[in-house]
Structures are given as structure tokens and as C-alpha cells.
Design a protein around this nucleic acid. Sequence first.
DNA 1: ATGTCATACATGGTATGA
Length: 292
Amino acid sequence: MRIATWNVNSIRTRFGRVVDWLQREDIDVLAMQEIKCRPDQFPIEAFEQAGYHLEINGLNQWNGVAFASRHEMTDVARGFDGMPGFGKPIKGQEEVQGTGPNGLPLEARALGVTVGDLRLWSLYVPNGRSLEDPHLEYKLDWLQALRNNTEAWLDEDPELPLALMGDWNVAPLDADMGDPSFVLGRSTHVSPAERAAFEAFAPLVADVVRPIVPEGYTFWDYKAGRFQKDEGMRIDFIMGSEAFADTVTGASIHRDERRGDAPSDHVPVVVDIDPSLLGGTFEDDYDRPMVF
DNA sequence: ATGTCATACATGGTATGA
């Protein structure tokens, strides 16, 4: 079974490419970020014709997260407890947007679903914009609220196979930052505060891809030929609980998806898991290992 | 090289976000 995360940078622009990739790579569940549309604008049919169900959390042309899954999704959560908001209310979305504990309107940055025994989240962590910008404090508060929820979810069920997947907008290690327009320690994504906020997720969840794929970026800015010069950043992660990590049998970063016509600026990150190591509540439409 | 994309808007270029 293959589970992936991809910041698609507008699903309306990218849906053909995304669906082609899902089928070619035999992906079971994809967490998407930056879909940049409302549910009524999402190209649902292209995914359904390819055999995928959808869950969508999108409010306007910014942000937006979604899941495409071959398996049934249940217990859908749009946002998490204590998630802060930012900015001004979105016109026409007053009924659905809601307000965070900081009194500001909520954005479409988190979507939780249950697939079989797995609890999966598609997350688009706020960018931060600059160290002096209020968006940076929003980013740190948002990560702390997510961390608090993660602790509560795992307190309730320490054996929960939980994966927090998405664009974390943090480069945790120096080797994860290859874009010279960012200065270690003094730019967003690599500031001590952001790295501390990321590190606070240990030991609740850990990066399940890095042990298998130690090198490589997941994002290259469109500007200044960053991809051609391989001046990228590793900021997209699949963070798994211990029970989730125990099922992981492989991982890959699909660098080639940054090539060709109209790529996203991010590439997919994939984990292979062995569902037989879980409780066994999946539908029987995956490749179950044969035992003789 | 203040670069390149995607999107909204009492639009057809400009503002905003990343």
C-alpha cells in the first residue's frame, strides 16, 4: 500500500498531471496541499474516474488541503482543536469559516481522515513570510497547537497508526536548505524558533522517509532557476507515530515530478506500508502478502 | 536577477501570496 503527500500548487492547473501520477505510481492515498480552490471548484470527476474518493477542505484561492483515496475515508476533520486563525474573514464564507482561539478567521490548512486503521492528516503549515511578520507568530502558534493535539491523540491511543503529512514549511537540518536566498538561523524555514517548533513533535512522531531517503529536496522555487541548479529545500514530510512507522517498508521522493510541462514547485513524497502489520480493517483491494 | 507562478477582479493589467 502506498501513501503520499504532494503540495500541488493549484489542483485546477495540475489535476491531469496529478491523476496520471497517482495511476502510474499505484498510489492508494494522496494528501494534497495548496489545492487553491473551494470544494465546488475541485476537479472531482478526474479523480473519481480514476477510482479515487475525495475529501476536500478549501475556502478560496489560497491554501486548501484534500485527500484522494482508493479506500473509504471516515471521521473527516477540518482543522484541529485550538488551531489559530489569521487575516480577515473571506467574503461569502462567513457560515463555514469559523474563528480560532485567537479571535481570527480559520484557514483551510488541515484535514484529517481515517483510512482503515490509519489516522492521516494533510497539513499545510503557514509559511511565516518573514521573521518580523505576524505570519511567523501564526506559524509557531499553529505548529504548537498541532503538537498539542498530536500528544492528546496519542495519549488516548498510544498504538494509533498516525501520520502527519504535508508541507511543513520548515527545513529541520542544515542539509535540508539549499536555497541561497535563505540564511541559516536568520530566515524563515531555518530560524531557531521554527526548528524548535518542528523538533517539539519528537518523540510523538518521526520522519519516516529520511531513514530510507537521507538526501534530497522536495521543493525548488520557480524563480532564478532553482531546480536546474538544485537549490531546493526539504520541507515536505511524512511524520509517523511509532505504530505507523512500524508498517513502513519503503519511501521515495519523486524528483522527476518537478520536470516537464507546468510542474508544481513541490514534488510528491511517498511511503510504502505493509497493511498486514496493522489490525486488518482495510478493504481487500490491496496486495496482501501471500503466506504459504 | 525584486527572478516565477497562480488567482481574483464592478478584469483585460495589477495586486497578493508563496
